[in-house]
């Protein structure tokens, strides 16, 4: 069953058309990677799916309901969560606070619950425990009460990923989680993803500009160039696709 369906969506900003008639659907529980050169429109596509930008044409539905008219926060609340290219952490919140913010259904988010401090503090305790658990998995418990601004680039990626996972999503969009991360940490991130897949029914859609990195983990690869999907299939089949070789892989192979 398809959890996400994207039908012929386009967007333009001024004269630029980053996404031009993209159609695809994603099976629940699957792991799909989107690859493509810089400027191909991958991040723009994520911005459209997650509601950060609105589509000009087409339709997006999630779990059978159209979502392209919803606000970004409403889409996230429905279980479709994303991370941002370059890992956005809130620098002036602590590492634990960054995570605690992601726990859904916090009564303390409602002003009226100011008057029921007990239910609030109970939930806070629960959220803190979840955060510590999550930090433990990525080996970052010792940073729990430091401002996230002191973290290194790689640690920020871990935090960003952990935070998105904390929302308990049905589907998660990851925008280049491995870019600029050292190989050991890439291993660790892949491990986290793999274990998340095993334990929960999470659907993954991941952007990466390097095919090799996602070869093993992906069940399917979508290739984008100039705002369009130019290939879509099993990871191995991508290598054999002539259009892809020309537009993208070819230049690298020739260079090598």
């Amino acid at each position: 069953m398809a959890i996400l369906e994207v039908r012929d969506i386009s967007v333009s900003f001024g004269g630029i058309k980053p996404v031009r008639g993209v159609t695809f659907s994603v099976e629940a529980g699957s792991f799909t990677s989107i690859i493509g050169p810089n400027g191909a429109g991958k991040t723009s596509l994520f911005n459209l799916i997650s509601g950060v930008n609105k589509i000009d044409a087409g339709e997006i539905s999630f779990k059978g309901q159209t979502i392209h008219k919803l606000h970004a926060h409403e889409i996230a609340s429905r279980g479709l969560v994303r991370t941002f290219q370059g890992a956005k952490v809130i620098k002036r919140l602590t590492v634990a606070e960054n995570l605690m913010m992601a726990v859904q259904g916090n009564p303390g988010d409602s002003l009226w619950r100011f008057f029921t401090p007990r239910s609030r503090s109970k939930f806070e305790k629960h959220a803190r425990e979840l955060a510590m658990e999550r930090l433990d998995r990525v080996g970052m418990t010792k940073y729990a009460d430091d401002f996230a601004g002191i973290l290194s680039g790689g640690q920020r990626k871990l935090l960003d990923l952990s935070r998105a996972l904390m929302t308990n999503p049905s589907m998660i969009l990851l925008d280049e989680p491995f870019a600029g991360v050292n190989p050991t940490l890439v291993e660790k991130l892949l491990e986290v993803l793999a274990s998340m897949r095993k334990q929960h029914e999470i659907t993954f859609l991941l952007i990466e500009h390097d095919l090799e990195t996602v070869m093993n983990i992906s069940e399917r690869v979508i290739v984008m160039a100039e705002g369009k999907i130019i290939a879509d299939g099993l990871p191995n089949s991508i290598y054999e696709n002539e259009q892809v070789v020309d537009a993208y892989l070819g230049s690298r192979k020739r260079g090598a």
Partner: peptide, 13 residues
């Protein structure tokens, strides 16, 4: 105060 996109992406209005 720092960023709107992150809280939004976590479901906050």
């Amino acid at each position: 105060r720092e960023d709107d996109d992150v809280p939004r992406s976590l479901g906050k209005n």
